[in-house]
Design a protein around this nucleic acid. Structure first.
Lengths: 203, 203
DNA sequence: GTCTATATTTCGATAGAC
DNA sequence: GTCTATCGAAATATAGAC
């Protein structure tokens, strides 16, 4: 596993945009993998399965990705695309509940727009951690790590820090934990309800 | 895998209670497995590893458990022990935010008292679902399923349902998502902060 | 109850033709 | 770019002695 990971980020366009050009094979692999990683988990998904569902053979996958973990990494990088420079704001200034509330507003939008990617992350924490352990490039200083650092910042009152963590969990819970209990609720309504709830927690 | 799963529940006593009798081998297996399933995930934990850390061989494990999944099932049953008859209250009456708030108070206590079991569940959702797919005994009608049913109950206003899900997520987030950011915060304080937060969400 | 084998399967990955 | 064929490793699980 000393191999360089060279994953890149697939297109995040909606699947049937008006002028959708046919997805590249690479992107199709990622989309199939994303669904399977959500449904069965990374470890229980075999390359054979991904290939089969795509109508190619295992070996073809290796033309696009150096390893199975490389596929996971490419999906992980999709997450870094959306808004998680948002967290970088906190690198310089002291975290406050007000800043946090602003951040969560953005996070809610991103999560609703890219449910699958977030869901995949929620359901494959262990596999993703292994990935990061091996990537000692530490170029990205992972999200979760920044997260924990923030929540450990002793300049902020404990009560506020707990509420910061809780408000994030609240958003996650409402969007993901419930399966599709709110699948029929329009995103805009869900978004508004959540914004209010977050405000109540961090007011 | 047509084999009957016959897992039973290990003792949930604190590890060094005053009159602690030495743990049975069976319980020691479960405790080691619990730690490893949290740290590396179910799929990446091998029976060899569990056995090694216990000072026995793989084969010995099979005297106590019929399969690797059987070990996971035994740990899953530990969860059913604590307080999740709590959810049964909702089977009969209409869910309300008031009932939900009461429930969450209990859940907070259970989570703080049995962090590891809950953490293991959070981090091995995929493996646990596979388990349930195979256990078509449906004797237990899983927690998560009851959960989703509750949150889909159209008698309750959408806004309230979303807040119910969010409040649960808030508790999970504060206790688990943060790693050990609040490890030094006394449980009693954490519990009180969370109770207040939940009240703000469901008031 | 625990051990030493070993059977069996599956998977990730590679080589090389086309 | 995709295929066929195969390698090698690792894991779960079993058989049978002690």
């Amino acid at each position: 596993m000393a191999q360089r990971i060279h994953a890149a980020v697939g297109s995040a366009l909606p699947p049937d945009a008006p002028d959708a050009e046919p997805l590249s094979t690479r992107e199709r692999i990622l989309d199939v993998a994303l669904d399977l990683f959500i449904e069965k988990g990374f470890d229980k998904t075999s390359l054979r399965e991904i290939a089969e569902q795509l109508g190619v053979t295992k070996a073809a996958l290796y033309y696009y990705f150096a390893s199975k973990e490389d596929i996971l990494m490419a999906l992980h990088l999709r997450l870094h695309e959306f808004g998680f420079d948002a967290l970088s704001r906190f690198a310089e200034q002291e975290p406050t509940v007000e800043l946090w509330a602003d951040l969560l507003d953005q996070v809610v939008e991103q999560m609703l727009a890219h449910r699958k990617i977030f869901l995949m992350h929620e359901r494959n924490q262990a596999a993703l951690e292994t990935l990061h352990r091996e990537d000692h490039d530490a170029q990205h200083d992972d999200l979760q790590a920044s997260f924990r650092r923030l929540l450990s910042d002793s300049r902020v009152d404990v009560r506020d820090r707990v509420r910061m963590a809780a408000s994030f969990g609240a958003v996650m819970g409402a969007i993901f934990m419930s399966g599709d209990a709110f699948g029929e609720v329009p995103s805009s309504e869900l978004s508004e309800i959540l914004r209010d709830a977050v405000a109540d927690l961090l007011r």
